[in-house]
């Protein structure tokens, strides 16, 4: 059952709330009729950000901190199909300047993960391939028009993800995952806005789609699993933050992040798992150079 607990632990990579990315990209599944439930705390903060390509600080916001508590649940429908749900509550805060932080329920994500095949690969391990379909919708009527202090982008979205996982018999594993996310237009409370070089006389904002990938390598032994990851998001369109302007919901938000996790399943009760993670933004565009810390507790029920 160790792998199964990890399956829940790995359900999400550290919530990059500065860009509200939520991915479900590991190579693991829950066994049939197993229910995993957990709570994840995330702390994301940055004091420098990229205004387009220009890295800068801003005394009118100081350090922007985004905290989140995410409820996570996963269920093994069959041994090849798991369904997963996520719902974060998010708080934002700026350490300097006049701007008010925001808080509220962000987006609910529902995902289905399906194992296409699993096969012995050479004599050293097992190769598995998965597809994941995930849909996200805002869970409250929050505004996306107060970046960087909005709690999210308020866009309905659907992502299709493909994951290839190699699990060596000796405990090493390698995971590659890539996704394309379609994003629906968002509606603002104002009748016009300027972005990407022109004025739009509309309260609707077209949202560019997003491509992301994550490569994870790690080692699993006994009750411990330690993956490290490199992930990159590319937004396929959108304008840059202009000089001395505020960020905007449809900006081209790109980043490269490095992350590490420690996951541990307790000797007793064996169904309880702990997860601690961190990530660091190596480069970006129209996002903050965020450092994130996450901690979570998960419990596995066999129904």
């Amino acid at each position: 059952m160790k792998a199964s607990v990890f399956g829940v632990l790995l359900l999400i990579v550290p919530l990059a709330t500065s860009v509200q990315a939520q991915t479900i990209d590991d190579g693991l599944l829950l066994p049939r009729r197993a229910l995993g439930v957990g709570v994840l705390y995330g702390h994301d903060s940055w004091s420098q950000y990229w205004e387009g390509d220009l890295k800068r600080a801003n005394g009118n916001i100081g350090t922007v901190t985004t905290q989140s508590v995410t409820w996570v649940a996963g269920y093994g429908v069959t041994d090849r199909l798991s369904v997963i749900a996520l719902l974060p509550y998010v708080w934002t805060h700026a350490s300097q300047g006049p701007l008010h932080g925001m808080d509220g329920l962000q987006d609910i994500t529902l995902a289905a993960k399906y194992q296409l095949f699993t096969t012995p690969f050479t004599d050293r391990g097992t190769l598995r391939a998965m597809v994941v379909g995930a849909a996200g919708i805002p869970a409250s009527n929050y505004t996306p028009d107060f970046q960087p202090l909005s709690i999210g982008l308020a866009s309905r979205q659907f992502s299709g993800r493909f994951t290839l996982n190699f699990q060596a018999h000796r405990g090493w594993f390698l995971n590659g995952s890539a996704a394309y996310t379609w994003r629906a237009k968002v509606t603002l409370d104002r009748p016009a806005y300027y972005t990407d070089g022109q004025l739009f006389l509309s309260n609707e904002v077209a949202m560019p789609n997003v491509f992301d990938y994550t490569v994870t390598a790690g080692y699993q032994s006994g009750r411990l699993c330690i993956p490290i990851s490199l992930s990159q998001q590319r937004t396929l369109g959108g304008g840059d933050i202009r000089r001395q302007d505020m960020p905007f919901v449809s900006n081209r938000m790109d980043w490269v992040k490095l992350g590490g996790l420690v996951m541990y399943s307790l000797p007793a009760p064996r169904e309880l798992g702990i997860r601690l993670g961190t990530s660091w933004t190596a480069s970006g565009r129209n996002v903050g150079q965020a450092t994130t810390l996450t901690g979570g507790l998960f419990y596995l029920f066999h129904l």
Binding site: Y114, Q157, W182, R183, K185, L201, S202, E204, V205
Partner: peptide, 24 residues
């Protein structure tokens, strides 16, 4: 996912992810 379901899913996705902007 069965192949037959794929076109249906794509239709639903494109409907859900409508990106057409209406000028006032």
């Amino acid at each position: 996912m069965r192949p037959a379901l794929l076109p249906l899913v794509l239709v639903l996705v494109s409907a859900a992810c409508d990106n057409t902007i209406t000028s006032t």
